[in-house]
Amino acid sequence: MEVLRITNLSKTFDGVRAVDGLSFGVEEGAITALIGPNGSGKTVTFNLITGFYRPTGGEICFKDTNITRLAPHKIFNLGIGRTFQNIRLFPQMTVLENILLGLKYNSGESLLAAIFRTPSMLREEKENMQKAIALLKTVGMENKRDEMAENLSYGQRRLVEIARTLGTDSEFYLLDEPMSGIFPNMIPQLLSIIKQLRSSGKTVLFIEHNMKVVMDVSDRVVVLNHGKMIAAGTPAEIQANEAVLDAYMGKRRMRAS
C-alpha cells in the first residue's frame, strides 16, 4: 500500500523548474531511496512534502489526507518527521534539550502547565528525559548530552538531528542525506537504525549519494533528474537502467579497450 502519493508536482523558482511534473508513490513500511544528480530536485521535493515550500502545481497525499498546502507543523502532526540536508539543530541549547523538543508532549508544552508546574507536566518531563537519554545512546551521543549543540562537530550534529527525528515517533521519516559527514564507523550503526525503523513498520524515504548505502538498505529507488522522475524500481533494476546511467555519467561511450 502506498503511504505517500505525489501527483504531477511542480515547483518553480523565478522561472527555474526545480520540480517539474513529478509523480511517484512511497510504499508503506518500506525504505525508499531518492537519488539523482545534484540539482535534480530531491531536497526541493522533501521541502514540498513537508510543507516548507508551497508547490506551484500538483498534489501530495499522505494516506488519505491531501497535505499539499498544509503548514509544516500540521504535516508533522499527521506523522511525517524529517531531517534537513544542512542540519537544523537549536545551536544555543544543549544536546538533551534538542532531543526533548522532538519528543511528544501532551500537557507539558502549554502555558498553564508551565506556570502551575502541574504534576502531569513534571511526570511527562521525567519520562521524556529517560527517552531522550535512550535516544542519545542509540546514536552514541549520550556523553554529550549537556554540550551546547553549536559546539558539536558536523557529524555529531547530524547524529543528534537524527536522534531528535527518531524521537518524534513519526510514521513516515524523510531523511535528507543522513550519512553525509558521518564518521565511517558510525555508518553501519545508522544503517541498522534505518532498518529497525522498517522492521517496526515505519516508512522511510531518504536522499543519499552513497550508492553502496542506497543499494544495501533500500527496497525501492526513485531516480530524479531535472525535477522529473526518470526511473523507479528495485536497486538491481536501477543499477541496470540506461536512463539512470545516462543521467549520472552522461551518454555512454564505447569503452576504449
Binding site: P72, N77, R88, F90, P91, M93, L100, L101, E109, E125
Partner: peptide, 24 residues
Amino acid sequence: SPFGRVLKSIREDELAALSIGKNV
C-alpha cells in the same frame, strides 16, 4: 519549562521548530 524550551527553540531556529511540529 517544556513551554519555555519551545520558546527558545523558536529563537534558535524557527524552521526546525516547525519541522518538529511546534505551532510557532
